[in-house]
Design a protein around this nucleic acid. Structure first.
Lengths: 358, 358
DNA sequence: ACAGCCTATTTGAACGATCATATCGTTGTA
DNA sequence: TACAACGATATGATCGTTCAAATAGGCTGT
């Protein structure tokens, strides 16, 4: 039996193809009685509209583009997995598919946009890792291409909540602030920060959170704020760099370290473990709450990735002419989700908690 | 200026649309002189064929489907990231795009196949994590849908190299065997295995490798082979389970542990670290060589994921009617790639090697 | 000189949907 | 009663490409 099409269905039912099309795309235009008949026929024939034919006529593909980044070190990168996962699930629920593409650089990513829009009529893009002066957002905005970003616009001028494009982000700064306060509550008085070189937006935000944390509570005096200067380390990401940096922080008298990533934190743990016996082990907090952190009992700041993905898809697909247009309320175009400080007892590869395994 | 199409180009050049089409798809049919003229015009106009129109006519989409699995614990899962990455890159090089979809179960995955084939005309699929009695491969074979699997067919009957479908896999067994021998060379005499319950194909293969390793060299006597029985633990994956299992193995006298995953190994390390002081620390070997292993100095068995991805794309796209058909030699339909034992000095979160960070 | 056969190119039809517009029958209103 | 307005359905054209078959012209061979 040949595959069902609008025409074959129409002939079988004795109606016109447009009626079937309407039954699918604009049911309110069809008499309820006819509608029911058509729907039954569709179900019986297992009819599914051809995406290609639709796309040719409407210039919409129901496909969203997402770049596969040249993954970081795989420790922090493992949350990208979760992100993709949730993205795919959320997109699917709304009838969209995800087109995965690879780009080595931002410039290359733009080139891919250009191609994919022309060739495959992608309906929109999901951006990740926005940064200062992001040429990608500028390019997309200029052409009026729909997109939503994981990451707020990091420009100095202007409120991100007034941004021209939609974004969803996690308030990392609030996360490190919470972590810092928790450390203070534990009695720590010299709390260092181990982060990336300034200028990265994301990194600066996490650093600022730590600073805010320090400026409250018992450390809110000038002296300790000055001390913060020497307890603030800038380094590239990576386990080895984390070990380096942590050693320097401890040398400067830190008793606790807040890190910009779990990679750095993992390195820090390593370094601190080789301290001379008798030294009380400094406390370490990571960022991203990767499975590794959970595994070795490292405290960390968790991002609600699944929620980010869902909201990105929501705001992106809304206004793309989705089926249920008008019925669903407009999702917010700028969302800052809270991060959660996950405190763990530092058994650090010592005792493993009796966690239920997956 | 409106977007260029075959017709607009044809009019501008004073030739017919089919000539342009031929210049693109079958250049040998066009007179070299005309070809050059057309190619220049294409470049100048920035013409790009519409995927939708093509797809409508040819019923091919130049899209390959790949399922986003509901990720494991993220430790082993981080290699899936690398896999997707390489897959996207390799596909792109051959003019294919990747469609990412989500499926909660194998049955759901089949349902997705069915839909995606009907609606989006996907040209083929990449399967991961094949297992015994895989209903997915059966379904696809039955319908003649092109696909290639990461993972050999794990049926007992018959040679995997005679399999009806294409696959690429890594010889994990050879990897654990090599690891086991290396441990023996270091002087270990009681080497345990910490793996998954039998029946999983992949896991059994790794266990078999360990067994093969034992049966060679100084342990090749009956007594030790019997001992192997009590040094063989079956457990679900996960860090906590790894800690449990390792403790039991050490209790049974093991001085070294070969694991079926880095998750298990991580747990094992944790458990072994809390041994009474004075006990010489048992050696641990993981599997997958995840970034975590590298970070904490855990020896592990590495899979050449990038190569797997490239070969999968190669064998899958070959024979899909790609452009350069006939010119490229047929890639092998069944590929078993070697795993590599990566030996690390067990500094285990003690000293961190001065590795260049990414 | 003409059939026959290449090579290079053109033409008509089709893929399966949606858009814009037309038709039909019914109802409401002047 | 005539005519406008409306709801429901039907028709023609179109999106941009490829397939299949047709055409035009040049060359060969007898």
């Amino acid at each position: 039996m040949a595959k069902a099409t609008l025409v074959s269905l129409a002939n079988a039912l004795g109606v016109s193809r447009q009626t079937i099309s309407n039954a699918i795309n604009a049911p309110e235009r069809v008499k309820p009685e006819t509608l029911a008949r058509v729907q039954r026929a569709i179900a019986e024939a297992g009819y599914r509209p051809s995406a290609a034919a639709r796309q040719l006529r409407t210039r919409r593909s129901m496909n969203l583009g997402i770049r596969m980044i040249p993954g970081a070190d795989g420790i922090n990168g493992s949350i990208y997995d979760r992100f993709l996962h949730s993205l795919a699930e959320a997109a699917q629920e709304r009838g969209y598919r995800l087109t995965l593409f690879y780009a080595a650089s931002d410039a290359d990513e733009i080139e891919q946009y250009d191609q994919l829009l022309d060739v495959a009529d992608l309906d929109g893009f999901v951006l990740t890792g926005t940064h200062r002066d992001d040429e990608r957002t500028a390019w997309l905005l200029e052409r009026g291409v729909p997109f939503a970003a994981f990451g707020r616009p990091w420009s100095d001028d202007g409120d991100p909540f007034a941004s021209a494009h939609a974004w969803v982000d996690v308030d990392g700064g609030a996360g490190t602030e919470e972590a810092t306060r928790a450390l203070m509550a534990q009695g720590h008085r010299r709390i260092g920060f181990l982060g990336w070189p300034t200028g990265s937006g994301v990194g600066d935000d996490r650093r600022a959170g730590w600073r805010r944390g320090l400026s409250h509570g018992p450390l809110a005096d000038d002296a300790s704020r000055a001390a913060a200067g020497e307890l603030d380390i800038q380094t590239e990401d990576g386990v080895a760099r984390g070990a380096d940096g942590a050693a320097r922080l401890v040398g400067a008298g830190a008793t606790a370290v807040v890190c910009a990533s779990d990679s750095l934190a993992l390195g820090a743990l390593a370094a601190l473990r080789s301290l001379p016996p008798g030294t009380p082990p400094p406390a370490v907090v990571g960022f991203d709450d990767t499975p590794v952190a959970a595994a070795i009992g490292l405290s960390s700041v968790a991002q609600p990735i699944e929620s980010v993905a869902r909201q990105i898809i929501a705001v992106l697909t809304h206004g793309l002419g989705g089926r249920d247009d008008g019925t669903t309320p407009e999702p917010p175009r700028h969302v800052l989700l809270p991060a959660a400080f996950v405190e763990r007892t530092p058994h650090a590869l010592g005792a493993v908690p009796a966690a239920p395994s997956p």
